[in-house]
């Protein structure tokens, strides 16, 4: 298939994620485990149960990881749900894209995290 995900050609084994029959079709680089999701709409008739559940869970901001935990669904499946909800404007994704591997974390982020840990 031409729409296979990006794997290492030289690897003896190939791995990809199951996404309800849509493996590899979705660009979900923008959605990480700690991206915060917030509902922008109430569940509507015609939505899937899972989409409606996401909207209820995210009435206050919630990470993608927490959504997967509460729905008991794999990350890649939740990602597809969220991409659909995002494209219809039913949710907002709040975190910026993940920090690039090579870049050092922002100094301001480090300072704030240290402050929070010190007061644990």
């Amino acid at each position: 298939m031409s729409d296979a995900p990006d794997w290492h050609e030289d690897s003896p084994e190939r791995f990809f994620m199951i996404t309800g029959g849509r493996a590899g079709h979705v660009e979900h680089a923008a959605l990480g485990l700690v991206t915060l999701i917030l509902s922008k709409a109430a569940p509507k008739p015609g939505m899937s149960l899972e989409q409606a559940s996401v909207l209820r869970l995210c009435r206050s901001p919630l990470s993608v990881a927490e959504i997967t935990a509460h729905l008991k669904l794999p990350f890649s499946v939740v990602t597809v749900l969220l991409m659909d909800l995002l494209s219809e404007g039913n949710v907002e994704a709040r975190s910026p894209a993940p920090i690039p591997k090579s870049a050092m974390p922002d100094r301001d982020i480090l300072r704030r995290v240290i402050g929070a840990l010190q007061s644990l």
Binding site: T35, M47, L57, P61, P96
Partner: peptide, 27 residues
């Protein structure tokens, strides 16, 4: 699948006290 779209019920509050503030924006 969404039923009556009723949102206000307490059984419908799956996050409860673990809810983050609305100002949370960076994970």
């Amino acid at each position: 699948p969404v039923g009556g779209g009723q949102l206000a019920g307490t059984a419908d509050d799956p996050i409860g006290e673990d809810a983050l503030p609305d100002t949370a924006r960076l994970g």
